[in-house]
Design a protein around this nucleic acid. Structure first.
Lengths: 205, 205
DNA sequence: CGGAATATTAGACCGATCGTCTACAAAATC
DNA sequence: GATTTTGTAGACGATCGGTCTAATATTCCG
């Protein structure tokens, strides 16, 4: 019993309980996936009682859906930051994303992976509604990368006949595998290996 | 209460309890992963009481380890069947494996994936001993594929300068991603896409 | 053929943890 | 200062992984 019940101050040194839950949820779920992540652990971590959780979210399923949404937004921003960076050539932008991702995984000692990959893997045991959400997220990433590859085409870094949409789908498919492998091996080797292989085999002209 | 206790006949119409547990375990874990798979469900499915489970296996962890071993053996046989098939050219053998895998996933309506991929994804929440096992399995697949690619070199299907080990690592990394994606999408598109992309970008000479 | 030893099953039981829910207190509003 | 809103506290029943004792079939040995 650490605190009396009731509403804590919110106006000033406010504590964004919902936000804290989402942040911690992302940390836990990108590490262990959905099924293996217990609410109790999450709540202990954030220092919030169960009642609060169920005030902000209808269920664990709803919480997961919110996490997917938040992760998609976070990742879309990251992709835009790199893929739309006019200071770099299109292929250099892709490389910058890869470098960023490697640094990100290293920062968490290769324990955390990709939320989409984690949930996709256990999709059979997840709410059916997640499937479409995850698919949509991947489709979104695909179109962002395809646009970057189109830019590469115009910059003469990629053959005019290249199928950018197909290449983008190929990239994200393999990339998810690389993230999984990097987690398993505990190093960035797989990420580098896949990225280099992908770029190396791009049709130049 | 369906049956009186005691040892059932084993000599004739014998029921291989341990084997049945392993078989069902493989089905469940390739679908839902480790954490999401409850012992109770498994036991209900096989029609075996808990006592038997803990007679054959020390713990869920030991059970999982046995599953990894069994899956590795099963998969190694499958790889040998294809990669050592002298009737086909080396690259045709790889294609035969891909076709086989597509058919296999389709047979289970794309619900079951790869045990190594599933467990690898949730490695952070798994017994640490699994990590090395899974790594070793992947390394084994890698060397089998590398040998097949070496054969392709000798057959003139692959450039003499190609780094077969590296290519093999690249393949399995991306392949795991493709399996994950095929599960998520519920079709073989990702498998085909990755396999075609891989073969297409192989250095021919 | 009989009795002891062994192999295997039956399922109650335990502490921990799962996700849900009801009761209530503080802050905000009027 | 009463009511409404916002949020917290923690009890709850179900189920989890795991252990344990009891019971019985089979095998072994004489």
């Amino acid at each position: 019993m650490r605190r009396k019940p009731g509403r804590p101050p919110r106006a000033e040194g406010a504590r964004d309980t919902r936000g804290a839950l989402l942040r911690a949820g992302l940390e836990v779920l990108t590490e262990k996936g959905f099924a293996a992540s217990g609410l109790d652990e999450l709540l202990r971590r954030v220092g919030v009682p169960k009642g609060s959780f169920y005030y902000y979210f209808d269920s664990k399923e709803a919480f997961g859906a919110a996490l997917i949404e938040r992760y998609a937004a976070y990742f879309a921003r990251k992709l835009d930051r790199h893929f739309l960076d006019e200071a770099l050539s299109p292929l250099a932008r892709l490389q910058a994303f890869v470098d960023d991702a490697c640094a990100g995984m290293a920062r968490h000692a290769f324990r955390r992976g990709c939320l989409v990959g984690n949930l996709g893997q256990e999709i059979a045991a997840l709410p059916e509604a997640y499937r479409e959400s995850l698919r949509a997220v991947l489709a979104d990433w695909e179109s962002r990368l395809a646009a970057c590859l189109e830019a590469a085409k115009e910059a003469g870094e990629l053959a005019a006949g290249a199928d950018c949409t197909r290449l983008a789908a190929y990239f994200w498919t393999g990339w998810e595998g690389a993230v999984l492998r990097a987690k398993l091996e505990g190093n960035e080797r797989a990420l580098r290996l896949f990225a280099e292989g992908f770029v190396a085999t791009l049709p130049r002209r």
